[in-house]
Design a protein around this nucleic acid. Structure first.
Lengths: 129, 129
DNA sequence: CTTGACCTTCCCCTGTACTGGAAGGTCCAG
DNA sequence: CTGGACCTTCCAGTACAGGGGAAGGTCAAG
């Protein structure tokens, strides 16, 4: 499969795929005699993996680390476990912060939906977040 | 209070505070006759607000929008409510993605902690995320 | 009255995740 | 055999959230 096909089915662009290859997120592909990249269909799954990681707030560098672990087919050393532990802690904190923010914004929103004068007291509004 | 004091107590830098002022997150302060910024202590709370927003994954532009609403002391118009609704939906999605990722990484981590040969089957490892 | 710590503006640099566009090669349909 | 769609590399620019450091002004202590 050529890069445009892969990009379309994975919902991204050829630019992005070349960028991912450059960044080590996608391994260099086979090339056709003309020099065109020749992808296997499994690449789509890998790109989906990257997208799921991004949707969850990971950086490409973090996703690349996870992919590297996965690619090695084994994740034995303490270093890797520590890396995942650290990531977990970070994610727990992000989750807590996000949940708190959701509640705060929900309150602000309710206030926005209910524009009675007394609910518009600046002192009260300023307590949020 | 001068900018260095505020930066120290708020746990940030003078550079960042000037940047925030530039971006409209902090209102321009009074100036001393010498041209020094003169902050009120409440500014620290505003910076904390910004930090909480960032910890929850908001961009400075999003935080500025919320601060603008707050500063007006009222949030009456539909536009604002829609903005908060959209942000809420985004946050719910982020929360879901983050929770899923946490579970995935926890599984990967457990596998990393348990390096028996059979748990290192690449096919199995590759199922994660 | 100088030294050091602080402040000012200014401009450029960093890293992240792309995006645009130029200049050129390839491939297939008509 | 030409046009258009695709591909290649390379260079450059974008937005975000600052950081580095120069050049100069201010202020309190010794």
């Amino acid at each position: 499969m050529r890069i445009g096909e892969i990009a379309d089915t994975a919902g991204t662009t050829t630019k992005t795929l070349r960028f991912y290859e450059d960044q080590g997120l996608l391994p260099p592909t086979e090339r056709t005699p003309a020099g065109y990249r020749d992808y296997t269909p499994e690449t789509v799954a890998r790109i989906d993996f990257i997208h799921r990681g991004q949707a969850a707030g990971l950086t490409l560098a973090q996703i690349r680390q996870i992919l590297d672990i996965r690619d090695r087919g084994q994740a034995p050393c303490d270093h890797v476990r520590d890396l995942l532990d650290a990531r977990l802690t970070e994610i727990e904190q992000q989750l807590a912060g996000l949940a708190a923010l959701r509640d705060t914004i929900a309150e602000l929103r309710d206030q926005a939906a209910r524009p009675e004068p007394e609910s518009c007291n600046p002192d009260q509004v300023c307590r949020y977040l």
